[in-house]
Computed example of a mutant assay.
Amino acid sequence: MEYRDYYAILGISRDATLADIKRAYKKSARRYHPDVSKDTDAKEKFIQAKEAYEVLKDPQKRAAYDQLGKDWHSGEHFHVPPNWERNYQFSSEGFSQGDASAFSDFFESLFGDHFDHSAGRHHRARRAHQHFAAKGEDIHAKVQIDIEDSFHGAVRTLTLPSSPLDGTHPQTVNLKIPKGVREGQHMRLGGKGMPGHGGGAAGDLYLEISFRPHPYYRLEQKNLYMALPVTPWEAALGAKIKIPTPTGPIEVTVPANSLSGKILRLRGRGLPGASPGDMLITLNIVQPKVKSEQEKALYRQMQDLMSFNPRDQFGFES
């Protein structure tokens, strides 16, 4: 049988990281996928890339494969080392029997499951009627939604920038957003990944949720945060102020003698759920600009009437 250089097949060095291996495989899979590529040998190269990935992504299989040495070259006549199956232990998880039967004699000789231990020989299944069926690759993407979507639930039609098959055609999907979805949460859309081959199932689409910036508030975990501008007289005298929330406007009470930075907590007004979050409102006292002589006179009157010095702690005379 012929030796297969899995590193050369994926175009990577022997010290490649797992991330390098995954990146190289995805590149090869996109290029040679039989449903996309017009190359006459696309199917064979697609299977070769998948076989190389099956070995190199698994630390145990990769370590065993590396023990063969780096002096072999693809196409050279190869014999399985004596007692190969006794020297290494590795599982065959990660591929189906249908996948394994489509791989090369080289792969089966090293990593096949069916050994006749009494004779010490490997019996390969006949492949005269083999049918190669491979599941498509999963897609991982980030998607932005509005904060209001998490409070009410929604169905949104999303257009992903491009299909991972050819990098040019956008993909449109319908996403059902449940109430209470959080930043960073992943949602799975079955069968919306890369198409399978030979009747194999399509991969899945995994979307990581993030929120678009909002002009009024932000979410952290299940709590809703908002900065509320108030006038000096509202902070000093107290006031009832109408504010927007994702579920509609409400009225909040600003206590008298509130200082800038004071936090008002509205329990249960955060993200909905079995244990809903809170809404935390930070007061921000906004000083108006003095424009007219009448306004200046009002401030001078305040200066004369109010014995207030915010720098008393310095110990200096005003």
Rank of each mutant, 00 (worst) to 15 (best):
G11T: 03
R14Q: 13
T17D: 13
D20G: 12
K26F: 14
K27V: 07
K27L: 13
Y32C: 09
H33S: 08
V36Q: 07
V36G: 02
K38W: 06
D39E: 15
A42H: 11
K45I: 08
E51Q: 10
A52F: 00
V55H: 07
K57N: 01
K57D: 00
D58I: 07
A64I: 09
Y65D: 06
K70C: 08
H77I: 13
V80A: 14
F90G: 04
A100T: 13
S104E: 05
S104L: 09
F106K: 04
F107K: 00
F107P: 01
E108T: 09
H114E: 15
H114W: 11
D116F: 05
G120I: 04
H122K: 14
R126G: 15
R126I: 14
A134M: 11
G136K: 03
E137G: 08
D138L: 07
I139N: 09
A141G: 04
K142F: 07
V143D: 12
V143A: 13
Q144N: 12
D146G: 06
I147T: 07
E148P: 06
S150V: 09
G153M: 11
R156H: 06
S163I: 07
P164I: 05
D166K: 09
H169P: 00
T172F: 03
K179N: 01
E183C: 00
E183I: 00
M187E: 02
M187S: 01
R188K: 15
L189Y: 01
G190L: 05
K192A: 10
K192E: 12
K192L: 05
A201R: 13
D204Q: 09
E208P: 02
S210E: 11
S210I: 12
P215N: 13
R218M: 06
N223P: 01
N223L: 03
L224A: 03
M226K: 04
V230M: 02
P232H: 12
W233G: 05
W233C: 06
A235R: 03
A236I: 10
P244H: 05
T245V: 08
P249K: 00
P249Q: 02
P249C: 01
I250H: 08
V252P: 01
T253C: 02
A256T: 09
L259T: 09
G270F: 05
A274Q: 14
M279C: 11
I281P: 05
T282G: 09
L283P: 02
V286G: 02
K289H: 14
S292V: 08
E293N: 09
Q294Y: 03
E295N: 01
D304H: 09
L305E: 12
G315A: 04
